Computed example of a mutant assay.
Amino acid sequence: MGYLGGLVTPLLQRMARFPAPTFAAAHGACLGVGLGLLIATDVVYVAESAKIGSPFAALGATLDSGGHALFVDRLGAHKTLDLIYTGRLMSGTEAVASGLFSRVLPDDEVLQTTTDAAATAANGATAAFLASKQLVSRIRDERLALWESIEVENTAQAALCDTDDYREGFAAFQEKRKPEFHGR
């Protein structure tokens, strides 16, 4: 059995950079590459009974696919190493309460809720969503300070002012109706 990191990393990078909102429903065990797929996704809804963690110590292996970075960023070093050293798996409820993912849902609702949220986003202001996705990635990856973040937001907002969706959104707001976005 060989290590798949060389194949998995480009896939995770492509997913994280995908130029549209991405959603994932997590049900069951989310470990290794499965966890990496969740990390590379914008919005993650997890079932209450999902299991998230790093059981790899029992295999003589280590957490991969971005798991260390996610856990340290959101849980801190102590909780990260506790999960790694003990192999304990968090429930979906605990993972969301710890800030790992977006929302916890009953097991029988997670897939439909995720599908509905993705459909809502697909019919929304996609140019604005892409701008927000890029902003969040840049703020996270470059660790931008507040004032730097405000500047890049201002630049993005100025560019969006020239889009049809921006004009439609403001017209719909003023006319008290639902906007009809077309991704332009």
Rank of each mutant, 00 (worst) to 15 (best):
G60C: 08
L63S: 11
L75S: 07
L89N: 08
A131K: 13
L75C: 12
A77D: 15
K79D: 15
A125P: 02
E109G: 05
T62I: 09
A128H: 12
Y85H: 04
G124E: 11
L111H: 07
L111F: 05
G99S: 05
T80N: 13
F101R: 00
I84E: 15
D107C: 01
D64Y: 11
I84M: 15
A128T: 14
T115G: 06
L100G: 01
D116N: 06
T86V: 05
S65L: 05
N123K: 08
Y85F: 08
F71V: 00
L100F: 02
L89R: 08
V110E: 06
S102T: 07
L105C: 01
G124Q: 14
V96C: 03
S102N: 03
A125I: 09
T86F: 02
V72A: 10
G92K: 10
L100Q: 03
T115K: 05
S54K: 04
A117H: 09
I84W: 10
P106G: 00
G67K: 13
A122S: 07
L63R: 08
V96Q: 04
A119V: 06
T114G: 02
A118V: 02
G60I: 00
R88S: 05
M90S: 11
G99Y: 13
L70C: 04
A131I: 07
A128R: 15
T62P: 00
H68E: 12
D73T: 09
T115P: 02
A127V: 14
P55K: 13
A69T: 10
A57Q: 12
A117W: 05
A57K: 06
A69P: 04
A95R: 02
A121S: 11
R74C: 04
D116P: 00
G87T: 14
T120M: 12
H68W: 15
M90T: 11
L59E: 15
A117D: 06
S54A: 13
L59F: 15
A128Y: 08
A95Q: 04
R74Q: 12
A125D: 08
L100R: 00
G60Q: 10
A97M: 11
H78E: 14
A57R: 04
V96D: 01
L130S: 12
V104L: 01
T115S: 13
M90N: 09
F56P: 00
A95K: 03
L105R: 05
R74V: 03
L63F: 06
A97Q: 10
L63D: 13
L111K: 07
V104F: 01
A119G: 09
T126R: 02
A95F: 01
A69M: 13
H68G: 01
T114F: 01
T93K: 15
D116K: 09
T113H: 14
P106Y: 09
G92I: 09
A125L: 12
A57N: 09
A58N: 10
